[in-house]
Design a protein around this nucleic acid. Structure first.
Length: 270
DNA sequence: TTCCAGGAGCATC
DNA sequence: GATGCTCATGGA
């Protein structure tokens, strides 16, 4: 059992589009799985086997001073303050790198319900069965496992043209051409370049991996929503965008991005 | 039927 | 480096 504290919101954390394997049990509590570990989050209490305490504390980024970040970001930006108030209690998770790579390859030109559905099928078909006191679940399949599969094996996922990207990612990670055991020690630029050696990983997907699994908080993934927000709400576009982000949000741009994305996805940009 | 979804690869300039 | 086209799938 872990107390996640007052500045934590399960719905804002799990429904903001950064993760795909947390499911609402119907009463606002969530069950999730990561790295073969299952836990239940009800209100601010995380229920897990005691030996997993340290794992989940790292996963939920307990060491981050959210109050400070929220104050810094909202100080000079009233529009962003509104987003931060709406998404208060949102935490940017530190997820498994491999799982995040594959999840965001699948996310390309796709919608969140279908992304979740495809990932669940991927785990059920190719992951390992895990028995927990909350029931049976399936782990996310390893790169080694997926590297042995063919395109026809993946047909069951109905993942479309992204099937070949999943295979490419699995083969490059399993062969250590993309060495995930080293990636956290690389500079952000070098890590991004390594991730983009994988087919299906472009700039946006790489930024998501850097932000959601490697705690590179200056990253600001730009998807169709964010581009729309920057254009409609902040009237910046094209080559001005990167300078705007760096100047206004700096080392915490990723948090600003998440608060914006979450708010305007739920409330239109008007 | 057409449009859209947390984009990326590729050709072309 | 920018631009335009195409890529599976399924829900609205």
């Amino acid at each position: 059992m872990i107390d996640l504290g007052n500045d934590f919101s399960p719905i804002n954390t799990f429904e903001c589009g950064q993760c795909f394997r947390w499911n609402d049990m119907g009463d606002g509590s969530y069950i999730g799985i990561s790295c073969g570990r299952v836990c239940l989050v009800r209100d601010n209490i995380l229920d897990c086997p005691s030996e997993d305490d340290e794992f989940w504390k790292a996963y939920f980024t307990f060491d981050v001073d959210y109050e400070n970040i929220k104050n810094l970001l909202s100080k000079h930006d009233e529009k962003l303050k509104k987003c931060i108030d709406y998404g208060s209690g949102l935490r940017i998770l530190k997820q498994d790198v491999w799982e995040t790579i594959v999840s965001f390859i699948i996310s390309a030109n796709n919608n969140i319900p279908r992304i979740k559905s495809i990932i669940e099928t991927l785990c059920r078909e190719f992951g390992s069965r895990i028995e927990s006191r909350f029931g049976a679940f399936y782990s996310f399949p390893s790169a080694e496992k997926l590297s042995t599969l063919t395109l026809s094996d993946l047909a069951v996922l109905r993942v479309g043209y992204r099937d070949k990207y999943i295979i490419d990612a699995a083969q490059k990670v399993a062969s250590k051409e993309v060495d995930l055991s080293q990636i956290s020690s690389l500079s952000t630029d070098d890590a991004k370049a390594m991730l983009m050696k994988i087919k299906g990983v472009g700039s946006k997907v790489a930024d998501c991996v850097l932000l959601f699994s490697l705690s590179r908080w200056e990253q600001f993934p730009k998807d169709v929503w964010i581009n729309r927000i920057l254009n409609d709400v902040y009237t910046v576009s094209g080559s001005d965008v990167d300078e705007f982000i760096q100047k206004n949000y700096g080392e915490y741009a990723g948090f600003a991005q998440q608060y914006m994305y979450y708010y305007y996805r739920d409330n239109n940009t008007n």
